[in-house]
Amino acid sequence: RERTTFTRSQLEELEALFAKTQYPDVYAREEVALKINLPESRVQVWFKNRRAKCRQ
């Protein structure tokens, strides 16, 4: 699998949801995934990595 490159608009959507909740449920992830045209699994991994970045 190729590394996913997020567009600015995708990142804005993801960061907006992250500001609301660092642990979105599957419904919130699927909703944003549809909105930004990415698989839910990519959204899930983005949140995992974003939380790790936050802890550093």
Rank of each mutant, 00 (worst) to 15 (best):
A19P: 02
E13Y: 08
Q22D: 04
T21I: 09
L14Q: 01
E2I: 07
A33N: 01
R50H: 06
V26D: 12
I36H: 03
E13M: 12
L34M: 14
E2Q: 08
L17R: 01
T21E: 11
Y23P: 00
P24R: 01
V26F: 10
D25I: 01
L17W: 03
K35C: 03
Y27L: 15
L11H: 13
V26H: 12
Q22W: 11
D25A: 06
Y23M: 06
E15N: 07
Q10D: 04
N37D: 06
P24S: 00
I36E: 02
Q56A: 15
L38K: 05
N49F: 04
N49Y: 08
A28V: 08
R8D: 12
E13H: 15
K35N: 09
R42V: 13
W46S: 02
T5N: 15
W46Q: 01
Y23G: 02
A16S: 13
T21R: 04
K48M: 07
T4K: 14
R29P: 01
Y23N: 07
V32D: 01
T21M: 04
E15Y: 02
K20Y: 05
C54V: 13
L11V: 09
A16P: 01
R3E: 08
T4Y: 13
P24M: 01
T5S: 08
E15H: 05
V32W: 01
T7I: 04
L11Q: 12
P24D: 01
R1S: 10
L14K: 01
R8V: 08
V32N: 00
A28E: 10
F6P: 04
R55V: 12
Q10F: 02
R50N: 07
P39H: 05
K48L: 08
Q44A: 14
N37V: 03
R42I: 09
C54N: 12
A52I: 12
E31S: 12
V43H: 03
Q22T: 05
L34Y: 07
E12V: 14
P39M: 04
N49I: 05
P24W: 01
R42L: 15
P39V: 06
L34D: 08
P39T: 13
C54Q: 14
R42E: 13
T7Y: 03
Q10A: 07
E13N: 07
S9I: 10
E31D: 10
R42K: 15
W46G: 01
D25R: 02
T7G: 05
Y27C: 14
P39L: 05
Y27N: 14
K53P: 08
T7S: 08
L17V: 07
Q44L: 10
K35A: 06
A33K: 01
R55S: 08
K48G: 07
F47M: 05
L11A: 06
R51T: 03
V26Q: 15
K35D: 01
R55C: 06
L14Y: 03
L11G: 07
E13T: 13
F47N: 00
R29T: 07
S9V: 09
S9W: 06
P39N: 06
A19H: 05
E15V: 01
F47Q: 01
Q44N: 14
F47T: 00
I36G: 03
R55M: 13
T4G: 07
S41A: 14
A16Q: 06
R55K: 09
N37S: 12
A16M: 12
D25L: 01
R51Q: 08
A16I: 08
A33I: 00
W46A: 01
L34E: 11
R29F: 05
T5C: 15
I36A: 11
Y23R: 06
Q22C: 04
A16Y: 15
R51D: 02
V26P: 09
R8N: 14
R55I: 14
V32G: 00
E12R: 13
D25P: 07
R1K: 14
R55P: 06
L14E: 00
D25V: 00
A19F: 10
N49E: 12
T5V: 09
A52F: 08
W46Y: 04
N49M: 05
Q56E: 14
F47S: 01
S9F: 10
A16W: 05
L17P: 00
K48T: 14
E2Y: 04
L34Q: 15
S41E: 13
L11P: 00
L14N: 01
E40Q: 13
A52G: 11
Q44T: 12
E31Q: 11
E12S: 14
E13P: 04
K20M: 07
Q44Y: 11
T4W: 03
E40I: 08
E15G: 03
F18L: 05
E40R: 09
R42C: 15
V43M: 15
A52L: 13
E13F: 09
Y23K: 07
K35V: 02
L34P: 02
Y27M: 14
E13S: 11
V26S: 13
A28C: 10
I36Y: 05
N49T: 11
F6S: 04
Y23C: 06
K20T: 12
E2P: 03
T4I: 12
E2W: 03
K48I: 13
E15K: 03
D25K: 04
Y27R: 14
Q56F: 11
N37E: 13
Q22R: 13
L11N: 06
K20L: 09
E40S: 09
T21C: 06
Q10R: 02
F6D: 05
R51K: 03
F18S: 05
A52N: 15
E40W: 03
R3K: 14
A52Q: 07
A28S: 10
F47D: 00
K48P: 01
A19V: 11
E2K: 09
T21V: 07
W46F: 06
E15T: 03
E12G: 09
T4R: 07
W46L: 00
K20R: 11
A16L: 10
C54G: 15
S41F: 06
R51V: 05
F6R: 04
